[in-house]
Design a protein around this nucleic acid. Structure first.
Lengths: 242, 242
DNA sequence: TTATCGTATGTCACAGTTTAATGCGCCTCC
DNA sequence: GGAGGCGCATTAAACTGTGACATACGATAA
């Protein structure tokens, strides 16, 4: 049984912009259901024109592209509140894949209603464009990390960004956040080998800056981590939730 | 004196979707002017909240991010028809820079009218979201190239994509297209050193697949280039023009 | 109990970087 | 008109950050 949007468990976090009653009403019509998936479930596949978009309510996933020989580039990690499938929704063609890493709960929206949303809810349409621009900005940051930063700088950048995102979701607890991914996933997001990623994480652990084990990331000094990762100061900013 | 949108020199290319009379009328109101810039002129700067968005009508530029120590990541190359500044327009904050490489002519749009566009022109709002999703998709491709491909594969990918984009703009002539950038620009877009980029281009020249000199790129065998660059087959698809 | 998966570590190889030098074309100044 | 400087492309040699390979260990599932 679907949760009504007004009872959404995450929408009242300060991270997310509030919605008007009219917007809430529209979203409740736009939402066609809820879906729970097990770990390692494909959610969207490259080449497929999916009829649905999703918002992640609970759980973790990732977006990735594959080369013909099996090499995998992880584009980003999916956390609660993230919209999934906008590219397919708007362009009618996916070029990347999305899959769950843990069990996930997803709100399901019907792509056929997207045009209705653009016609009747300009603020929500603006929010969708904002989300697309935000994802573009993140990919620009990732491109800069992979293209210009050393392995240590890149790993620090990635862990700092992950920590801050989960902190904004109030998932932090005593300077640690859940991080249920494998080291290969982080390696594939930064264009590094698994072995080198492991060694770089060991270096951070030995310097007591950050340690990742048993599905949790402990960050002792987020400022140091951000400085080592050359993370740009980003103004705190709330974001739309679909 | 500004060109009226209905007399836009590039809008009738098959690459671009046609506009209705109402949309044309709206765009002519949305457009506040035209701007010509000299080579090496900053158009948008990181951190600045620009009051304007632009469409490139003529000329070439690039988008890039800088690290604090001066390292530069070129995010993408700007060609005619490209929208500039959507991120700033929607998110009210740029995190990258845009600058001209050659003299450019730009259509200028007023950011204050963006909300009017969303309220009154849902099809144009949809087009903006499409453009944002398209740029996100391109950055995903670039991330995959830099993160997973060898230097030779990356250079082939980049040159093949550049050739196809300019071909779609009907700027090709006897298997060559204009490419008025420096080798350092290509190197900074692929996260490679200048020397290694030069050697890789020499390898392509010696194999008679592609050669880049005197501001032009000659591609003798685009299929071979695409294959070496592991370029995904992309369905021909026209795109909106702002 | 055995097999599999993920993490950890040591060693060696190499793709790409860094440094330095050269050549060419263009532009400015005398 | 010629000299000098600058920017860009090219190349060689030395260097290194990262990849490849191999092995071991602990946890978990069959």
């Amino acid at each position: 049984m679907s949760i009504k949007c007004r009872f959404c468990p995450i929408r009242n976090l300060p991270l997310f912009q509030p919605l008007t009653d009219a917007e809430l009403g529209f979203m409740e019509d736009f939402k066609v259901g809820e879906m729970t998936v097990q770990p390692d479930t494909p959610i969207l596949s490259s080449g497929a024109a999916s009829p649905q978009l999703f918002t992640a309510l609970k759980g973790f996933g990732l977006r990735y592209r594959l080369l013909s020989d099996g090499r995998r580039q992880v584009l980003s990690f999916v956390f609660p509140g993230d919209l999934i499938g906008l590219q397919a929704g708007v362009m009618n063609q996916m070029t990347h894949n999305v899959e769950s890493t843990t069990a996930m709960t997803l709100c399901v929206f019907n792509r056929n209603e997207l045009w209705t949303l653009f016609r009747n809810q300009p603020q929500r349409a603006y929010d969708l464009t904002w989300i697309a621009a935000s994802e573009e900005r993140f990919l620009g940051e990732a491109l800069t990390a992979i293209g210009q930063k050393s392995a240590l700088e890149s790993v620090c950048w990635a862990l700092a960004r992950i920590y801050r995102r989960l902190e904004a979701l109030h998932m932090d607890e005593r300077k640690s956040v859940p991080l249920p991914y494998r080291q290969q996933d982080l390696a594939d997001s930064l264009g590094l080998s698994l072995v080198h990623t492991n060694k770089t994480l060991a270096k951070l652990r030995s310097r007591q800056i950050a340690s990742w084990s048993d599905g949790r990331l402990q960050v002792n000094d987020i400022q140091a981590l951000e400085e080592m990762g050359l993370v740009d100061a980003i103004e705190p900013h709330n974001r739309p939730l679909m």
